[in-house]
Amino acid sequence: MLSSTGHPFIFLLPVLALLIFWVMAKFEPKPVGVTKKSFFQRNGTPVAIYLIVAVTFWALFMIVLPQLFMVEMSFRPKLPPVEMGGPKDLYTFENYHYFIYGSTTSSDAINWVHIKAFFLTILASLLVALFNFALCYPLAFYMAQVARPARVRFLLLLLIAPYWVNEILRAFAFRIIFSSGGLINKMLLGAGFVDQPIDFIGNDIALYAGLGYAYMLMMIFSLYNAIETLDHAQIEAARDLGAPWWHIHAFIVIPFAKPGIASGCTLVFMLSAGSLAAPLVLGGPRSLWFTPILYDRFFQAFNWPQGAAYAFILLLACVSFVLLVLRLGRLSLGEIAK
C-alpha cells in the first residue's frame, strides 16, 4: 500500500493537468492563413493577466483542489488526529469496501441498508425529475408560446416569489400541510373522500412533493428557454397541415426542446439526489435517502474519510447516469448548456 503522506502529490496534480492541456493545445492543428487576435491583444495585457489569474485561482482553489482533497481523503483510514501521517496512515479501499460489505457488526455481510438507500435515491430522483417535467411542460409551453408578455411576467413573479422563503422553512411548511392533521387531510376528510387521514409523510409522498417543488424553477426555466426559441409559425404550420395538438407536441415541440428538457431533467435529478434538507425534514420514519446517510458519516460517525467515499460514489453515479442519458438522447453537453 502506498503511504498517504503524499500531500505535495495532490497539489502537483492540477499543475500536471494544466501542463498536459498546454501540450495538447500546442499540438492542436491550427487553421492555416487565419490570423486571429490573441487573447492578450484583444483584452490588453493587464486585463488578460487578471482574467487568467482570477479564473485559474477560482477554478483551482474553489473547485479542483477541495474536490481532489476529498477524493484523496476517501482513500485514507479513519484515525485519531495524533496518528494522522503516522505509520498507520496508508491508502486503503476500506471506505468503498464498507459501502458494499460494511455494517457495525461484521465486514462480510452485504451492506443492504446503504446500497438500497443509494439505488432508491437514484430511482426516486429520476422519478422526481420525470414528474417535474410532466408538471412543468404545460406551464412552460403556455408561458413560452401562448401567453402575452404581461401575463408571462406575472407568472414568473408568482413562480419566483415562494423561493424567497428559504428551503428548510419551505420543507417544514410542507410537513405541516401534509401531516395527518394538516390542511390536505382536513380537506379530504371534510369533503368525505377518505375516512382515515392519509399518511403522506410515512408513504414518502410529502418527500417527493417537497423535492419536486424545491427544484421546479430549474425545470421551468430550462423548458421555457428552449420552447421560447421555437418559431410559433412552426406550430401553426403543423396545425395547418392537419396535426392534432398531441402530435404537434410529440413531433414538433418536444424534439425541438430536447436540449432544454435534458438540461432541466439532469439539473433536477442531480439536485434531488444531492438534496439534504427535504429528506431530513420530510422523510418518513422508514424512508432512507442516501444524503442523510452521507451526512451521518461525517457528523454522527465522525468518519470523514468514509463520508468522502460515499459522496464520491454518489457524484460518480450521478455524473455517469447523466452522461448515459445524454448519450441515449444523442445530445452533447454543449447543447444542453445553451
Binding site: A233, A237, D240, G242, P244, F256
Partner: peptide, 29 residues
C-alpha cells in the same frame, strides 16, 4: 379549426421543420 379546413398555408418565413428531412417535411401532413 385550421387543422380541419381544406386549406394549406405557406408562411412568410416558410416555417419548414428544421429537425426533419426534406421528404419528412413534405410527408408531414
Amino acid at each position: 379549426g385550421p387543422n380541419q379546413r381544406p386549406t394549406a398555408l405557406i408562411f412568410q418565413n416558410l416555417a419548414l421543420f428544421p429537425l426533419m428531412t426534406v421528404a419528412e417535411n413534405i410527408g408531414y401532413g
